[in-house]
Design a protein around this nucleic acid. Structure first.
Lengths: 141, 141
DNA sequence: CCGTTTATTGGAACCAGTCCAGAAAAGCGG
DNA sequence: CCGCTTTTCTGGACTGGTTCCAATAAACGG
């Protein structure tokens, strides 16, 4: 990984209140390179093909701290492996019932939106999951 | 289980297009008795304490057919075990980040609502997950 | 450079869920 | 009520995803 890239990643980690360790820069970099919604194993596999041997459990550890620091998000997409993505513009997800692919859906508010009525507690975010059949799967059937 | 109850459950199963078998009436009854959002294992445990030995895989099978028939729903609540609930009024969920309890949030529309903009495919439903801290956890901290 | 604090490693263990093939039950026509 | 066909159930093995833990190593403030 080139030096500028690593420095940028390190700074983001520190800005998030995390120590800038090797595994953390590598995992964050890999998640960013992959783009979109990825499982811990996909990150693990990319690092492996790059020759970086790292235990799976470390990938899980790191992803958990990235989420804790707000640098990554888990995408709610239903059962199965948890999907992670680099934190960016707030958005929602469309999950295709056929191919299970997850597509971003821009959020009108651009930030956590919608508040439930009633005295339920403090709501930090509202995420919407749209379920249906994607355009691709509609044409291929 | 009393006879009237069993008959009612059987009828609901048949109305849903399913054969009214023992495991299905028992699982549907147990899910209803438990109320709220429950994992397959919670249903399994209730049946066990009732002295009904049934394989866990049967509970999974049955829950899957109940969902397929529209008699039960899976509640989107993030990672972890899938939560099932008896189908009723369409609603959303508030998930407490502290105690992980799931609370129903009435849906203003009373049915699958919200449509994403853009040509994304066919949207069947839109489920909202509110995340935050529930009233109980706020006071106890 | 040292010490303290925090993170990583690697492997074992765990839990949720799926798969499969034989056995049983449901519902049909007669 | 009987037997036939189809659907469902069973039980156990198995997988994938994730967490746990105790020893080791690395980060960073002084």
């Amino acid at each position: 990984m080139d030096v500028r890239r690593a420095a940028g990643l390190s700074r983001r980690l520190r800005d998030g209140g995390l120590r800038a360790t090797g595994p953390r820069t590598e995992v964050l970099g890999a998640l960013e390179d992959l783009g979109g919604h990825r499982t811990a194993d996909e990150v693990y596999d990319l690092l492996s093909t790059r020759g970086r041997r790292i235990p799976r459990s470390s990938v899980y550890n790191v992803l958990a701290s990235l989420v804790g620091a707000g640098l990554a998000l888990t995408a709610d997409a239903g059962p199965g492996a948890v999907l992670y993505e680099v934190a960016g513009e707030w958005h929602h997800h469309f999950v295709c019932k056929v191919c299970h692919r997850v597509t971003d859906v821009p959020c009108a508010a651009g930030k956590p939106c919608l508040t439930p009525s009633g005295d339920i507690g403090v709501v930090d975010e509202a995420q919407v999951i749209f379920r249906g059949t994607c355009a691709d799967c509609l044409t291929h059937s």
